[in-house]
């Protein structure tokens, strides 16, 4: 572990950043999530030891998660620092997630083929910066080809869009 210590002088900022390790962050997040689950279970009856109710298992599991989350956070002082995680693929990941969300919204409005066609054009042209010809050919082949295989041959019900496309 390489810790940043230049003599004993630590600026407040670097002190904070040295405290923020990956495990501390993730452990705290898990513990907070567990607390959230316990809070959300308040409306459900807990039941008893002999007759567990609907909230029994969730609360029990959330308590376990809370314990492990706290454990991870407490012992995570020497894990990697948050700042050392590199987020170089972040823009790509966001773009991909974005197109996933969009396709899901569009799937039952536009139909399968058009949604996938648009999605692929966006990914291949917009994100991966390929040529138009390749993009269009690839997107057409994949969207219509997969539709043919599933809808026509395997009879998987897929949503149709306007004009029955």
């Amino acid at each position: 572990m390489t810790s940043v210590r230049f003599g004993n002088k630590l600026t407040p900022m670097s002190k904070l950043s040295a405290m923020l390790t990956t495990d501390r962050i993730s452990g705290t997040a898990l513990a907070l999530f567990a607390l959230g689950v316990i809070w959300e279970s308040r409306r459900l009856p807990l039941g008893t030891f002999r007759v567990p109710g609907p909230a029994y298992m969730p609360v029990l599991l959330a308590l376990l998660l809370l314990i492990f989350g706290v454990l991870i956070a407490l012992t995570g002082g020497r894990a990697e620092r948050l700042a050392s995680i590199r987020w170089t693929e972040w823009p790509h990941a966001v773009a991909i997630l974005y197109i996933c969300i969009f396709s899901t919204l569009a799937l039952e409005r536009l139909g399968y083929r058009l949604t996938i066609l648009f999605g692929l054009v966006f990914l291949v042209k917009g994100v991966e910066k390929k040529g138009w010809l390749l993009t269009v050919l690839f997107a057409l082949a994949l969207s219509f080809g997969s539709f043919y295989l599933f809808y026509t041959l395997l009879r998987v019900p897929l949503p149709l869009g306007p004009w029955g496309i």
Partner: peptide
């Protein structure tokens, strides 16, 4: 992108 299509499908 092709893998994504098959995941969604």
């Amino acid at each position: 992108p092709a893998i994504l299509v098959f995941c969604v499908l």
